[in-house]
Design a protein around this nucleic acid. Structure first.
Length: 209
DNA sequence: TCGATGATTGAG
DNA sequence: TCAATCATCGAA
């Protein structure tokens, strides 16, 4: 078993969000030579989004066309388009008594296929490659076509594999939302000091670390 | 149908 | 600090 199975995702969404840190997000693509290649990174930042208890969640008001994946099978991808520019990728996860839930993957430590990431991102700046939810999807070429992909299957074009143990985990408020600001459902690998990214939000938006 | 909004990013 | 940019959703 190389990949967390459905039992991993059938737990409270914020528990899964925390434990996804250190796992590997893997994108399988066919290159120009017709060979299967891997683009991957260690998950270093996540956020949990819930159901009726979470006004910031897409699932808060119930099932819609967009959020269908959040109500469907667990361990699936929930990919959505936002701000007219960007895709964001989640993994669906929730305990049995909850009807919807997903974990937003906000940042990676680039691991495999870094040249391809640079190509998709149109930049050589390593620090800017996957340091944000819109950057992650761009670097891994994740679009709506991968919505509801089975993330527990190592053969899937988009899936999650076991990775490394992480020890320093920071918990903060979630980024870029206007509601449910009290919930500390964001999880970041590190000591709390500045990756430039964490620092950007910590200083400008007064995120409690 | 229509207007407001957004789980963002990059440039100034 | 701000514009880009458009799919989605709830209200009309």
């Amino acid at each position: 078993m190389d990949s967390p199975d459905s039992s991993f995702y059938s737990r409270p969404t914020k528990v899964v969000a925390r434990e996804l840190l250190g796992k590997t997000l893997v994108r399988l693509i066919v290159n120009t030579m017709g060979q299967l290649t891997r683009i991957s990174g260690i998950i270093v930042e996540t956020e949990a989004y819930g159901f009726r208890d979470d006004p910031a969640s897409h699932a808060y008001r119930g099932l819609t066309l967009r959020n269908n994946a959040m109500f469907g099978g667990i361990g699936r991808a929930y990919v959505y388009f936002t701000y007219g520019n960007h895709f964001c990728v989640n993994v669906t996860a929730r305990s049995h008594e909850i009807k919807a839930g997903a974990v937003l993957i906000r940042a990676l430590q680039p691991l495999e296929g870094i040249d391809l990431m640079k190509c998709f991102r149109k930049t050589d700046n390593l620090l800017s490659l996957t340091s944000g939810p819109g950057k992650v999807t761009q670097a891994l070429n994740i679009t709506r076509a991968l919505n509801e992909e089975d993330m527990t299957n190592i053969k899937s074009k988009l899936h999650i594999e076991f990775g490394i143990d992480v020890f320093d985990i920071v918990t903060t408020r979630r980024i870029g939302i206007t509601r449910a600001l009290d919930k500390t459902w964001r999880f970041v690998v590190g000591h709390g000091e500045p990756t430039g990214y964490l620092n950007r939000y910590a200083s400008r938006k007064q995120i409690k670390v």
